[in-house]
């Protein structure tokens, strides 16, 4: 049972400002960290020194030209990158600190400093592709971490339980046999990718698993997805590391989506991803979405408490929503396979 929690990310260095009223705001990180205290985990926490990801580390997943342009865009004052995504003068530094926090967490775990890591940093990352910022994301933090591990010969599972499909992460590892990418997400919904027929490229068939579920889906539906599809598929992949794109916007109170999870459900999901890790010290949760501050605090607390073996369940689990049939359909799509590459017309890189 895990007992030491490494926490990376420093909100005092956060200079990524978004316009008033924008849901992806600096106070999110404070709310996530407050969840650790609310869950009574303070004693178990080791805070890690902040560090910045280097261009070399970022270039494992991002195009050098994109990195150069993003830095120049921020330095020049920034602006809108798309109708959802903004960057300002402090955004580049904040973004490389967020990606660096994932690397700091991984390295500290690798050194045996703790049993699990939580990266509480922003902006989120899973929509960012190799060369396109979108959906509030500038750099793909979890992908930078997974690529660093893969380069050391590790086999990495990325579990993405954010309510939105992580199109950027999927695209980055589409053809990469070193990484298994699994996503549960609301569908139809932004960003429109993540159909169950999207299963990975020719070099990594079946190593992308998409489990789209309808609006209103509850925690029991996602637990069923873990028990019948994600856990068995991950066991076959035999990972040496587990990274979680831990968005908490599938919570029923989140303003940006329509799933019906509770904080207790996130505890149940976290207990399951812990089962995926081959041993203590090989599990890192990376914050993605989560836009209701109270729900974010409770959900982070419940998830981390479950991993540390503490009892903290501010809300009981939810059940009875739609989506069991969608999980079954995803399981069949994964097991039956099909043409690698089918259903990928939204990929950006060629």
């Amino acid at each position: 049972m895990a007992s030491m929690l490494l926490v990376a990310g420093d909100p005092t260095l956060d200079r990524h400002e978004t316009p008033a009223g924008h849901p992806e705001r600096p106070s999110r990180v404070g709310a996530a960290l407050a969840g650790i205290d609310a869950a009574g985990l303070k004693e178990a926490v080791v805070r890690l020194e902040p560090r910045r990801a280097t261009l070399e580390e970022l270039a494992r997943v991002h195009a050098p030209g994109y990195l150069e342009a993003l830095r120049a865009f921020c330095d020049a004052g920034g602006g809108n990158l798309d109708p959802d995504t903004v960057a300002g003068p402090g955004s580049w530094d904040t973004a490389i600190l967020a990606a660096g926090a994932v690397l700091a967490g991984i390295d500290a775990l690798d050194a045996g400093a703790g049993d699990a890591a939580f990266v509480a940093a922003r902006p989120p990352g899973h929509h960012a592709s190799a060369d396109l910022a979108m959906g509030f994301c500038l750099l793909n933090n979890v992908a930078v971490g997974a690529a660093a591990l893969a380069e050391r010969g590790e086999r990495v599972v990325i579990v993405d339980w954010d309510v939105h499909h992580g199109n950027g992460t999927q695209e980055i590892f589409w053809d990469d046999p070193r990484v298994l990418y699994v996503s549960t997400h609301q569908s139809p919904w932004y960003p429109g990718t993540g159909r169950r027929t999207e299963r990975g490229g020719k070099g990594a068939p079946g190593l992308t698993i998409n489990i789209p579920v309808p609006a209103g889906a509850t925690g029991d539906v996602l637990c069923h997805a873990f028990d019948t599809l994600i856990l068995p598929a991950a066991a076959r992949f035999d990972p040496t590391w587990v990274l979680v794109s831990a968005g908490f916007d599938a919570h029923r109170e989140d303003p940006l989506a329509g799933l019906a999870l509770t904080a207790g459900d996130f505890g149940d999901l976290a207990a399951r991803v812990q089962q995926l890790a081959p041993r203590p010290g090989r599990l890192a949760l990376v914050l993605e979405g989560g836009y209701d501050l109270g729900a974010l605090e409770r959900s982070v607390g419940a998830a981390l408490a479950a991993i540390l073996g503490h009892h903290y369940r501010p809300e009981s689990a939810s059940a009875g929503g739609p989506g069991m049939d969608a999980v079954e359909a995803a399981r069949r799509a994964h097991e039956e396979g099909g043409d690698p590459g089918h259903g990928v017309d939204q990929r950006m890189s060629r």
Partner: peptide
């Protein structure tokens, strides 16, 4: 977009100026 999908008409227009 993400905001447009989730928010009421006009609510998100001012957020990012588009």
């Amino acid at each position: 977009g993400l905001l447009e999908e989730a928010m009421a008409p006009g609510e998100q227009a001012d957020l990012v100026g588009q």
